[in-house]
C-alpha cells in the first residue's frame, strides 16, 4: 500500500487547471493591462481637461468680478455730487485744469461729444487708478451724466465692455485704444 504522503501527492498532482482556463486567465491579464494602459493615457488627459475648465471658469469669474467692481465703484461715485475742480464746456479747458492726467479726456465717440454738453470735471480714482470724472448734460434735457475716463492697466484690462445696472444706475462701459470709459446716469 502506498504511503499516505504518496497517495495525497498523487491525488493533488492529478488536479490540474485546464489549459483553456490558463489561456483565459492570461487573456484576462492582457486585457486588463490594455485597459490599464488606456486608463493611464486617459487620466492625464482628463486632468488637463479639468484644469483647463477650472482655469477658464476662474478666469471668467475673475473677469466678471473686476467688471462688477468697476461698475459698482462708478455707480457709487456717480451718486456723490462733489465739487468740480473746473467748470467748463470746453474739453481743452478741463484737460488743462486736470493737469495731473497724462491721457486725453475727450471721448473719441463723436456722438457723445455731439449729444452732450460738458459741464466740468474733477479727479477721481477707479480701482485705485487715477481717472477723470466728467459731468455731462444731454442737450435734450438737463439731467447729469458722469463720464469716467482712465487708462487701462493690467488689472482692469479684463473688464468686459457692456451695459450694466447697479442700484438703479445705468453704467455703460467701453474701451477705446488704451482707455476705459464708463458713462453713468440715473437716480
Amino acid at each position: 500500500m502506498k504511503s499516505l504522503e504518496q497517495k495525497l501527492n498523487n491525488y493533488y498532482r492529478s488536479k490540474r487547471l485546464a489549459s483553456h482556463r490558463i489561456t483565459a486567465i492570461q487573456t484576462s491579464v492582457q486585457e486588463m493591462g490594455g485597459t490599464r494602459r488606456r486608463i493611464s493615457y486617459l487620466v492625464p488627459l482628463a486632468a488637463v481637461i479639468l484644469l483647463t475648465i477650472g482655469i477658464g471658469l476662474w478666469s471668467h469669474m475673475s473677469t466678471d468680478s473686476i467688471t462688477h467692481q468697476v461698475v459698482a465703484e462708478i455707480g457709487q461715485n456717480h451718486r456723490q455730487h462733489g465739487a468740480l475742480v473746473v467748470e467748463s464746456d470746453q474739453y481743452g479747458v478741463v484737460q488743462a485744469a486736470l493737469s495731473e492726467l497724462d491721457f486725453p479726456i475727450r471721448p473719441r465717440r463723436g456722438k457723445l461729444v455731439q449729444d452732450f454738453v460738458l459741464v466740468g470735471g474733477k479727479y477721481c480714482t477707479i480701482q485705485g487708478f487715477k481717472a477723470a470724472q466728467l459731468k455731462l448734460s444731454p442737450r435734450k434735457n438737463g439731467t447729469i451724466h458722469t463720464l469716467y475716463v482712465l487708462p487701462m492697466s493690467d488689472d482692469i484690462k479684463s473688464v468686459k465692455p457692456g451695459v450694466y445696472e447697479t442700484n438703479g444706475i445705468r453704467v455703460e462701459l467701453w474701451t477705446d485704444q488704451t482707455l476705459l470709459y464708463g458713462l453713468a446716469h440715473g437716480q
Binding site: K15, L17, A18, R21, A24, I25, S28, V29, M32, G33, R36
Partner: peptide, 15 residues
C-alpha cells in the same frame, strides 16, 4: 470553485 478562486486571485495580484 478552485478555478474561480485562482483566476480571481491571479487577476487581483496583476491589478
Amino acid at each position: 470553485d478552485a478555478e474561480d478562486l485562482v483566476q480571481t486571485a491571479w487577476l487581483k495580484l496583476h491589478q
